[in-house]
Nucleic acid binder design. Structure first.
Lengths: 131, 131, 131, 131
DNA sequence: GTGGTCTAGACCACG
DNA sequence: GTGGTCTAGACCACA
């Protein structure tokens, strides 16, 4: 139901895969403000990971203001997921684009292939939402 | 002289930044087949990194057939930098695009901004080459 | 009616916020000896909290001699709210001041700003009383 | 040498005591930019705590931009410890002052005693610096 | 040597 | 039931 999945063999840490996954679900509208997210234990059981690992992801998301905890009740999507400063945002996107383009250039992709593949990937991710 | 630079504070390992950098210079034509590359010691000194780190990058590049060592003379760009299988190539590009798009979506970028920023990054990197 | 309010998102437990709140109202004279306090159920309903949580606060206040239960009639402010030993009192204030100053120092506040902000906060709380 | 100490019996988490301690040492100038901080393992050994607990504090400080890590080399005080927005800063100080004043009022302290005790606590903490 | 990650399992406070 | 903390110990990558 939650469309969350992690790959323990991936180089990127499980807690980060989880954090990014939730961020994406929230950003894409698949998880709405106020909505419950699975409990740490439930998530850990479903994904076959250690509860502490799931807890780490949740805690970071809570610190970032994406989730918030009602003690003894559970964890929820925050009412007003905070926006990033425009500067920081642009810088982050540009850097990610450079990392991507670096791979594309190395593999001999053309300018068109590079931008169109990015567009396709974008559409694919956006399709995860509820629309 | 080689336009190589590494960022010790980046999350990606220094040896990998170096390896990718050389791959890009070769792929973009900034480094031509038969051309000398700096020695491990020289490179380590210039970039202020540990020689073992530079050696690791060169070793991997040599294993991959990108560089070629002539004992006593130095290290050179291989005559015929190997091509990648089409399938593997496409898969690698697609995966990189997904990583990039994931960041873009999370930051609320539009489809246009995503593909255009990728294009800009591509042009910027291509500009590093000699052509 | 009682000017009591709790913040479920605060790090400090709800029952403690409640307990401290009542203590403050009594100490400041906003609640006089012999006066009725709301029932556990009423309070829980007004503050939108779990009755068990309100009960826990009342229990602790009763144990401490601040409140006093007359069975079948309700809960009242005790006639002679107990005083604290001078030593314990001073120690408690000093420790609280250190916690506060620690925050202030970390945030780069000056000595004046630190003591004046404490004074302002004091006046604001005192204003909650009836005098 | 590091003047860091933690109390496992305290209600506040060890990792937070540690985090606050380092923040204070940096803010007060006792730890200067570029300076090394003890390694996770060393700190854990000295304080008799679990390395993971010390690591958690360091990681949070790194995320906050107070410390930064040079891989394989160690952890250092960041060159430019980031400043907080003025609004956020003032809000944080005011809230801390209210928590403190709440205790003071509850214990029957006068306005003078409240502000002077805060001042004394401030001076005591500032004395930890190197001046 | 360094920091980072993960697991396993325990204990606690809260509601 | 919920999340938070802590310990113990293992493994990994990096320099």
């Amino acid at each position: 139901m939650t469309k969350l999945h992690v790959d323990p063999r991936d180089a990127v840490p499980i807690w980060k895969q989880l954090e990014d996954g939730v961020r994406r679900l929230v950003a894409s509208g698949a998880l709405l403000p106020g909505e419950v997210v699975p409990s740490v234990r439930e998530l850990a059981r479903d994904l076959r990971i250690n509860p502490a690992t799931a807890a780490k992801a949740y805690q970071r998301l809570t610190d970032a203001g994406i989730l918030h905890v009602r003690r003894g009740e559970g964890t929820f999507v925050a009412d007003a997921p905070p926006a990033l400063g425009a500067k920081v945002r642009t810088k982050a996107i540009t850097e990610a684009a450079l990392r991507y383009a670096s791979v594309a250039v190395t593999l001999g992709a053309s300018e068109e292939e590079t931008s169109e593949t990015a567009r396709t990937a974008y559409q694919q991710l956006k399709g995860d939402g509820r629309g």
